[in-house]
Each structure stands twice: as C-alpha cells, then as structure tokens.
Design a protein around this nucleic acid. Structure first.
Lengths: 123, 123
DNA sequence: CATACTTTGACAACCGTTTTCGTTTTCGTG
DNA sequence: CACGAAAACGAAAACGGTTGTCAAAGTATG
C-alpha cells in the first residue's frame, strides 16, 4: 500500500460528503503535495475497487467519491443544497431489488439507490 | 416544434428501455436520416427540459434517455448485456425512501433507483 | 551494490458532450 | 407568391473529465 494512496484516502476522509477527483487533487496540491492527477485517479479507483470508498455520478457526469464509515453495502441521502450525505441502511430495498430481479428472470442483480432531499439546516 | 425533434422523439419511443444519444444518432442515420449528432443532443435536451423524457447517467458517465409510457413514477431493471429494460413498480421503495427522508429530517425527498442484472436471454 | 518489480506523474489520447458559426429551412407578413 | 426575420440545422472545433502511455524514480530482494 503506497504512501500516495494513503494520502488520497486521508484527504477524502477529511470530508463528510462527496468530493470529486479534481477537488481532491486541488486539496492535496494546496497542502503542498506534489502528487499528480493521474495518481489521484488511480488511488480512487483502487479504493473504490476494494470497497473503501463509494462512487457515484453527479447529473453532469462527474464522478464523486466518499469515504464510508462502514464496510457493508448501504446507500445515502444527499442534501441537494449543501451536499451533506447521511448513510442509510435499507434491508427493505435490498430485498425488494432481489425480488424484482428474480421475478423478471434476471441474474446477478445489483442496484443503485440515491435519495435526495433538503436537510434540516438548508430548508 | 421541429421535424427533427419529432424524429428523435419517435426513435426513442421505439425502444422500451434506455438509449444513449449516440445510439439514437446511429439509429436515425441507419434509417437514412441526414440528421446531425448536434441536433440529436439538442432535441434530447429540449425533450428532457420539457419533461417528456427522463435522463440518467450510467456508471461510466454516459447520459441515457428514455421515453416513458406512463406518467407515473416507476423504475427499471436493465440488462447489463443487451440493455433491455423492464419497467418495475415499487411501492415498497417509495415508502422506504419517504421514511428514510423523514427519519433524518429531510424535506422534498426524491430518489433514483436503478436495478441492473443479466436477463434470461443473455445469461 | 545489483537487479527486478512497482509506483509515480507529465503529457497525450479518448470520448461523450457542448459551443461556434455559417448555412438552410421555416414561417409570418406584405 | 415573394421577402425577410427568426429559428433550426449540421460540420467541425472546443471542452472537460477521465484514462492510457512511458520514462523516471522509488522500493524490496538477494
């Protein structure tokens, strides 16, 4: 496990919400690191592969990343004003997605669920 | 309302699932149309603005569009091989999303849910 | 210290999307 | 029908995020 990857992980875990690769790169450079953009992308990809961070796409196609507290599969409810994200658990959805897959003869079923709203502070 | 836009709308409604702008462009050209890619994008954007089609992003950042048969809110299960999409209903998820929002003090809660799998024909 | 292997980062390539801009089509009006 | 303004069109260039390339730097091993 390289130092650079660790640096990216730390930069990401300093935030509670989602952060884009470019943002993280800017953060690290601002801190004086000489890291390259390529490496940030590679680190994020590796972290995402190992399940240490979540990835999702914003509406304009940019990938955003988030360091998760828990290892398990879960979803988020994201404030559409301040982008704060709260982790939510959903045995209900998991079961529902699996059922729907089975019902229509689909195998290897996965799903993405994102919930958006306005949080208490922003409404 | 222009002829081109109508052509794009029809090309899209010929499919039951999601279709990318590039796919639609290829479809139209294959039919002999001399439409330009730019126009396809413009038409899709206009249709999306007016709420006639839904847009979402695939995991690799590409925008995909669908013309919905029903006005009502529903989701899809998409085959990751052939991209066929089946509409599914989910009172369960709707309720779950609403509950989660309320539980964390979020207002104006919306959600996106997409289920992926491999359909019977492709597995 | 020598060697093999991995990681790094500058830079270029990619790809879907958007913008630009000159041309064509559409449409209301005389 | 003819005319001119306004809208739509499409080819090509620009754009922006992401990924690939490759030589240099780092690291472990013997």
């Amino acid at each position: 496990m390289s130092t650079r990857r660790e640096a990216v992980r730390q930069a990401l875990s300093g935030y509670s919400g989602f952060r884009s690769a470019q943002d993280l790169y800017a953060d690290l450079r601002a801190e004086g690191s000489k890291i390259g953009l390529t490496t940030v992308y590679r680190a994020l990809q590796a972290l995402s592969d190992s399940g240490e961070v979540d990835v999702l796409r914003t509406d304009d196609g940019e990938a955003v990343y988030r360091a998760c507290d828990t290892e398990s599969h879960h979803h988020h409810i994201v404030c559409r004003v301040c982008a704060t994200a709260v982790e939510i658990e959903g045995p209900t959805v998991e079961r529902w997605a699996a059922e729907m897959g089975a019902k229509h003869g689909f195998t290897g079923v996965t799903h993405t669920v994102e919930v958006f709203g306005t949080c208490t502070g922003c409404s």
